[in-house]
Every structure is written in C-alpha cells, then in structure tokens.
C-alpha cells in the first residue's frame, strides 16, 4: 500500500489542485494523508515523518517555492528521510524547475498535468511491499 502526504506549505490558499491530486491518488488505491492549508515546513516534515509516507507531495501556487522548498528539503535530509519521494506541483516557472530538482525534488508537475501521469510516476518510483 502506497502512502502519500499531500501538503500545502506556506500561506497559499489555492487548494483545488491539492484536492484533485488527493482524490486521484485515493482512487488509484493509495492512502493519502491530507493536512489542510497553511503548513509550515516544520509541520510538513513532522507529518511526513510521523505518518511514514512513501511520497511527499507538495502543492505550491503562491510563488513561495524558492523559500519553502529549500527549507523542507533541508529538514527532510536532517531527519534522514532519504527514502521519501518528493514531488512538487502547482505554479512553478520553467526557470525554477532545475533548481527544485537540484534540491532533491524528483519531479515538478505544472497546470494541466494529467493525474494519470502522476500516478504512473509514483508507481514507477515506489517499491510496493
């Protein structure tokens, strides 16, 4: 069973995308922990750690990813959560994508992404026990 945390870090109130992702992953047979809006990076990582998720799915549309994602990835490394697959989606300008990948994000998904592609990507990357 694949466990996913869908998180909305920062002050971003756009939650439609996060909910679309959560439902799509549930319908694909995954267990999705949703923590709601306005999470600090510390809260996001604490939840991912406590819930022992395979995937950390971050949805950011506010433009704050250049500050939020480095902090989150720093905490992920601090807690030795190297086995967690980190995905990022929302409004991430093309120019920022490489920097996000460099931080350890596995892939960035922008507007109009087919949820089937996300599901396929996760299934491909996560070993199912």
């Amino acid at each position: 069973m694949i466990r996913v945390l869908v998180a909305k870090p920062g002050l971003d109130g756009h939650d439609r995308g996060a909910k679309v992702i959560a439902r799509a992953l549930r319908d694909a047979g995954m267990e999705v922990v949703y923590t709601g809006l306005h999470q600090t990076p510390e809260q996001v990582v604490d939840a991912a750690l406590s819930e022992d998720v395979d995937v950390l799915a971050l949805s950011i549309l506010s433009g704050a990813h250049p500050t939020l994602v480095p902090r989150i990835m720093e905490l992920v490394k601090e807690h030795h959560m190297d086995d967690v697959l980190v995905l990022l989606g929302g409004i991430i300008p093309e120019d920022d994508v490489d920097a996000m990948l460099h931080l350890g994000v596995a892939k960035v998904f922008g507007p109009g992404t087919d949820t089937n592609d996300i599901i396929a990507f996760i299934r491909d990357r996560v070993e199912v026990v």
């Binding site: 069973m1 959560a22 439902r23 992953l25 549930r26 319908d27 694909a28 047979g29 995954m30 267990e31 999705v32 922990v33 949703y34 923590t35 709601g36 999470q39 809260q43 939840a47 819930e51």
Partner: peptide
Amino acid sequence: FTGGAILGDRIRMQ
C-alpha cells in the same frame, strides 16, 4: 472499491 483512502483527521489536530 479501490482500497485507497483520504486520511483527513490530522487537519484538525495541527
């Protein structure tokens, strides 16, 4: 049907 789930209790426990 799918075995999947949305676990939302944590939202209220932040």
